[in-house]
Simulated assay, not measured.
Amino acid sequence: MSSLIALGTGGAATVATFYLYVGVRGNNKINVKPEHVPYWAFGIGELAANAGTAFQQISGIGTQLSDSFKGNAAIGDWQTGATAALLTIAVFGLKPKAWKDALCGAIAPSLFAAAGGLWVLPASLVSGLIAAFAK
């Protein structure tokens, strides 16, 4: 059964990335406000998690970031939830910047899923909605 728009996850990730790129530039008919970039990027990250190999490197960034904190003996015990909390604070606590919010938003779904617990809820809710429209 095909969905409403039948893009597939790889096609939807590409279309959403291009829309975000065109919209952030602001010189076109599409305009994405800086405070909306994390939400767009989060959706792109969700799509990338289910897309082909071209997009699977995005989820690896979050894992590598968390592993770099875990491997640092000076910090002590570090769990993936702490990395997810830092990422969330960086997105919503700092002034909106398109490059920062796009990167953090795109790696957030895989990092939230790896963290487990309550962090999984936003990723699983958005994933279910996207799956209903993209496939």
Score class of each variant (00 low, 15 high):
Ala54Arg: 12
Lys29Tyr: 15
Ala98Asp: 01
Ser127Leu: 02
Asn27Phe: 15
Phe18Thr: 03
Ala131Asn: 10
Thr80Gln: 08
Ala132Gly: 15
Pro96Trp: 04
Ile30Lys: 02
Ser59Tyr: 01
Ser124Asp: 02
Ala82Phe: 14
Val120Trp: 08
Val126His: 08
Ser68Gln: 11
Ser2Trp: 08
Ser66His: 09
Ile5Tyr: 12
Pro122Glu: 03
Pro38Arg: 03
Ala98Trp: 04
Ala16Cys: 03
Val15Pro: 10
Ser124Asn: 06
Lys97His: 13
Gln79Pro: 14
Ile44Thr: 12
Trp78Arg: 01
Ala16Gln: 06
Ala131Gln: 07
Ile130Tyr: 00
Ala106Asp: 10
Asn27Tyr: 13
Ala123Gly: 10
Met1Tyr: 11
Leu4Lys: 13
Ala12Asn: 05
Gly43Arg: 04
Thr88Arg: 05
Gly10Pro: 06
Leu129Ala: 15
Pro96Arg: 01
Phe42Ile: 02
Phe69Lys: 13
Ala82His: 07
Pro96Ser: 00
Val37Thr: 06
Gln79Ser: 14
Gly81Asp: 07
Glu35Thr: 06
Asn50Ala: 08
His36Pro: 07
Ala82Ile: 15
Pro34Tyr: 03
Ser127Ile: 05
Ala73Met: 04
Ser124Pro: 10
Asn50Val: 08
Gly93Leu: 04
Pro109Tyr: 06
Met1Val: 14
Gly81Ser: 09
Asn72Cys: 06
Pro96Ala: 01
Val120Lys: 09
Val32Gly: 01
Thr17Gln: 09
Asp101Met: 01
Gly8Leu: 00
Arg25Met: 05
Leu121Lys: 04
Thr53Met: 13
Gly81Asn: 03
Ala48Gln: 02
Ala123Asn: 07
Ser68Arg: 13
Ala13Phe: 07
Ala6Tyr: 13
Phe133Lys: 05
Phe55Tyr: 15
Ala114Tyr: 09
Cys104Ala: 14
Ala82Val: 10
Ala54Phe: 15
Val15Arg: 12
Gly71Arg: 12
Lys97Val: 10
Ala115Val: 13
Gly45Asn: 09
Pro38Asp: 00
Phe92Gly: 05
Ile130Ser: 02
Thr88Met: 11
Val15Leu: 11
Ala54Thr: 05
Leu129Phe: 15
Asp101His: 02
Gln64Val: 13
Leu125Glu: 04
Ala74Glu: 07
Gln56Tyr: 13
Ala51Met: 08
Leu86Ser: 04
Ser66Glu: 04
Thr14Asn: 03
Leu111Trp: 12
